[in-house]
Amino acid sequence: MNPEQLKLVLETALLCAEQPMTINDLRRLFMEEISTEDMTAALLEVQSAWADKGMELLELATGWRFQSRLAMREYLDRLTPEKPPKYSRAVMETLAIIAYRQPVTRGEIEEIRGVTVSSNVIKQLEDRGWVEVVGHKETVGRPGLYATTRQFLNDLSLTTLQELPMLDDAEAQAASVAQRVIEFEGDQAVAVDQVIDVVDTSSSEEPASVDATDNIENNEKTND
Rank of each mutant, 00 (worst) to 15 (best):
L29A: 06
T40G: 15
D52Q: 14
A61K: 00
E74T: 14
L79C: 13
E183Y: 06
D52R: 13
E37H: 13
I112H: 07
N2K: 10
R106C: 02
R69T: 13
K123N: 11
V133W: 06
I97C: 01
T36H: 14
E110W: 04
Y100C: 02
T139G: 08
Q124F: 00
T80M: 13
S118Y: 10
K137Q: 15
K86L: 15
K86I: 10
F66S: 08
Q188H: 05
Q5K: 15
D224A: 10
E110Y: 05
L95C: 05
A175G: 09
E108F: 02
Q173D: 04
A172R: 13
L29V: 06
G141A: 10
E220I: 08
K83S: 14
V115G: 01
R150Q: 11
T201C: 00
E4V: 09
N218E: 15
S88Q: 08
L44Y: 15
R101P: 01
A189N: 09
A175M: 14
Q179G: 06
I182E: 09
R78P: 00
R73Y: 09
W64V: 04
A17I: 07
P81N: 08
D127R: 05
R101A: 04
A90T: 10
M72Y: 06
E108T: 02
D224Q: 09
H136L: 02
P143S: 07
A17E: 04
R89Y: 10
V181F: 02
T201Q: 08
I196N: 00
F30Q: 03
Q124L: 07
D200N: 12
K221F: 06
E110K: 01
L76G: 09
L26W: 08
E220R: 08
V210R: 06
R73P: 04
P207A: 04
R27S: 11
S176W: 03
V9M: 10
T222I: 13
E126Y: 00
E132M: 08
M31N: 15
T159G: 06
Q194I: 06
E126Q: 11
N223I: 14
E206S: 13
L43H: 05
L153M: 01
D25T: 08
V133L: 07
T105P: 03
D77C: 10
A51M: 11
N218W: 12
L95F: 02
V195K: 02
G141V: 06
I182D: 07
E37K: 15
L76Q: 11
A147E: 02
D77G: 05
M166T: 05
R180N: 05
N120E: 12
N219L: 12
P84Y: 04
L167N: 03
R28P: 00
V9A: 14
Q194Y: 00
F152E: 08
A42Y: 05
D169V: 03
A191S: 14
T22G: 13
E110V: 01
